[in-house]
Write a protein that binds this DNA or RNA. Structure first.
Lengths: 338, 338
DNA sequence: CCATTGTGTGGAACCGGTTCCATACGCGCG
DNA sequence: CGCGCGTATGGAACCGGTTCCACACAATGG
């Protein structure tokens, strides 16, 4: 491959001047610049970003750690991050973090640490103090999406508050037999999103003086999961709740399909509300509290870029709440008169 | 940050020996190795992969270009690629290619070319001869998933054959009024997957001597898209087909939901078959021709690794067909007696 | 008129590793 | 005994850029 020295030789200048001409740093006469540029074009020269990184200490590459690729929320966040990074001239190196602790250590200790990335974005992953220490010890800024992490800049919706809002909407419609189908807290490496949402749900119930007993079921975070659990929950017409607050839209959609399957009319016999603002919510007429994961991804990149720019004033660490919007559709209404 | 020379100084050896001790190349006495390793541990030394890449000419990084992140097939492929790469000790740098030509050029000319990646995997993107020329001119192997590309190793199902199989299944059940809801060929940067599947469909119809007129509608490749188009197609009970061959499972699922919405019984009044083997197919009882995108991603990485390993014998370029399996579920049956 | 400032260029150090080459020692073998 | 080989180590070149520093020259200004 052709190197900068080749370009310099052809253009009849020194390596230093060739570098200045191509990078635009420092003084170069117009005439010289033209010669260098055309020499570069002639031999198809492209800079080695590796060499560049070595000397500048910057990689223009951001590592993204994320637990899932095939779930709506995570794919959307990744989408937002990707477009924002490309726009900023940064590469994105992807690490999917499995729940396996060994694999997780490997990603951090082998991959993330080797001066390959300038910064890290953690999506839906609560970094341990040790992991944060490793990264920030190397001077790598971190941004988080999906929940608060001590000491670093993070961004997410307020899960407790959002779940409370969803539940309050249902309560304000007059429902009293309300059930929450939420994610499994044991499996969550993705923060405590689901326990937070459960907390918000229970708080809302409590505030309204409603019965909390037997008001919660665990469901796999997927349409299939919501469907399966909803089938069992809705099977008994007498014990059946009049409203379901789902931990996320996938589960809510699963519940809607289950209801249809069982011949239960939505919303007249059953109200369903979700959280997230999933692409499919509109089609299913699902009332939901919408967040905008793609925009959050973009925002996280902007946070990071600010931090990378003014090296001195570190971007205020701490948690930023991202707003949610109640999208009322046709899946919620007042309960039928008894 | 600590450099190799620091480690060498502390261990009381030369840089060369320190390098050998840590990398495991060349002769080092056990005693010396121990000293170097503990010196490295003491100051928290980690190699600079940048410096390493510069001197070895290898980055241990693979670029993946992909058009969508939030569609099932692509997310699954990416998932497979990611895990296979990590297992092989490679990083994965992600480039989502938008249909925008300017952006696409930018990704190739600015990002992919700068000696950042050792190889490229193109998922669902038909590279132009010029793009292939750029990459292979730099000695970077390429693997493709999603369709054949001249001159490089690719991997995908046989879309024509698969669509024919799906259609034949429907025909063999006795259907004669069959409609195909397929993806829009104009939007497809992702090869001609959808026109191929349309071709297979039409060929099957022709072989069976069935009427091809008005047997095809375009649908956006999504559940919502399938739903919307199916609603219009199924609205008129007299003109309605007795079976739908969907271009992909998302569209098929949308059609199933639309049918339910319209009170059309599946499969007694309408059979639906899909292509892909989507996660949700089982839940919806959707008969489909399943491919395994995740496994294809893994396979593509293996192809690439083989090519990177024995630099001489380039892996046989050309297209490899990945098998599909007919998963019969409850969405297909013989048409009702007229 | 000479000091100062702005512009243009080259030489050389440097980033942080890997590896080639030279050197040195111990040992087995003809 | 001397040669050759395997082991162990250090010095130095090198990968391909960026940037500091020195130097040269022209224009400006007090």
């Amino acid at each position: 491959m052709s190197a900068l020295s080749d370009v310099a030789r052809i253009a009849g200048v020194s390596k230093a001047t060739a570098s200045r001409a191509l990078s635009g740093n420092g003084y170069v006469s117009d005439d010289t610049r033209d010669r260098v540029v055309s020499a570069a074009a002639q031999i198809g020269y492209v800079v080695s970003s590796t060499a560049q990184s070595l000397v500048t200490g910057q990689t223009r590459n951001v590592g993204v750690v994320i637990p899932y690729l095939n779930r709506w929320y995570f794919a959307e966040v990744l989408d937002g991050i990707e477009s924002a990074l490309i726009a900023a001239g940064y590469d994105l190196t992807l690490y999917r973090l499995s729940p396996d602790a060994v694999q997780r250590r490997r990603v951090f200790e082998y991959f993330l640490v080797r001066k390959r990335v300038d910064a890290v974005i953690a999506v839906g992953i609560e970094l341990t103090p040790h992991e944060i220490e490793m990264l920030s010890g190397l001077g790598k800024p971190i941004a988080g999406i999906g929940g608060p992490i001590d000491g670093i800049a993070t961004l997410s919706i307020d899960d407790v508050e959002t779940a409370r809002l969803a539940t309050d909407h249902i309560i304000s419609l007059g429902h009293t037999r309300i059930m929450h189908l939420g994610g499994d807290q044991d499996l969550e490496m993705d923060f405590h999103v689901h326990s937070q949402r459960l907390t918000g749900f229970l708080e809302a119930l409590r505030s309204a003086g409603l019965d909390e007993s037997d008001a919660f079921r665990t469901a796999p975070v997927s349409i299939q999961g919501g469907y399966a659990v909803a089938l069992t929950v809705l099977a008994d017409p007498r014990a059946r709740p009049t409203a379901i607050v789902a931990g996320c839209d996938e589960v809510a959609i699963g519940a809607l399909i289950a209801a249809r399957q069982l011949g239960i009319q939505v919303p007249s016999q059953l109200s369903v509300i979700g959280i997230d603002g999933h692409d499919l919510a509109d089609m299913f007429g699902l009332t939901t509290l919408a967040q905008n994961p793609k925009a959050q991804g973009v925002l996280a990149v902007e946070l990071l870029m600010a931090e990378l720019a003014d090296t001195g004033t570190l971007e205020e660490p701490g948690w930023r709440a991202y707003p949610v919007a109640l999208d009322v559709r046709t899946s919620t209404t007042a309960p039928a008169e008894v």
